[in-house]
Amino acid sequence: MKKLWWKILCIALLFYVVFMGLMGPVPHLPILNESIRNTYFHVALWLAMTTLLFASMVYSLMYLRSSNLKHDDVASELAKSGLFYGILGCLSGSVWANFTWGDPWPNDPKLNGAAVGILIYLAYLLLRSSFEDEQRRARIASVYNIFAFAVFVPLIYILPRLTDSLHPGSGGNSTFGSYDMNNDLRMVFYPAIIGWILLGLWFAELRVRIKRINRLREEEFIQTSKPL
């Protein structure tokens, strides 16, 4: 029971976000109109994804320092839930883009960067699947994960800012915080970020537990099936 509180918090926050996100007051801006509600889902999902991938990188670092397989399990599962959020973020973004920019996949540096970022992490999963030995897989995948995050951040957050992009905060557009975030939005936006991060952690935690149970059962199986 002692670890239950953050799951309850997560559910409460997400309920709050869904209800307030669909029914709460929002500022009326030209072009965006009611689709500004997507801020709670699309933008918050991307921020949550970056947080999850950052956490995954931290666990990879911890694995390299300690050689404890548990850390590598956590790193890989966090990367998986980050990848899942990335795909969701792309989908929600393309729904949004369809209504505001008139095209589900406008040729925008940030979108292309995001697609490449997803490819990087798919390559990470492929790399993991191409090793048999667990320690070896964990070490090499950790090295690649750290390397990938270091490339991923400039790809998503720095390069689009240098060019013209449709997203806010790029190519001379002002950033999000400064012009269209009012207090109504903030009241839901910040809980949304926290809620999505918690949900991602929850996914990762469940999958890590499944992995550990499987490993234990395998070890038991090996021990019981030893020749007499």
Binding site: V116, L119, I120, A123, L126, S130, V151, P154, L155
Partner: peptide, 13 residues
């Protein structure tokens, strides 16, 4: 194969 898959996305930026 792995070399191509791993390096292209990383080198793209």
């Amino acid at each position: 194969t792995l070399m191509a898959v791993l390096s292209f996305p990383i080198i793209l930026p």
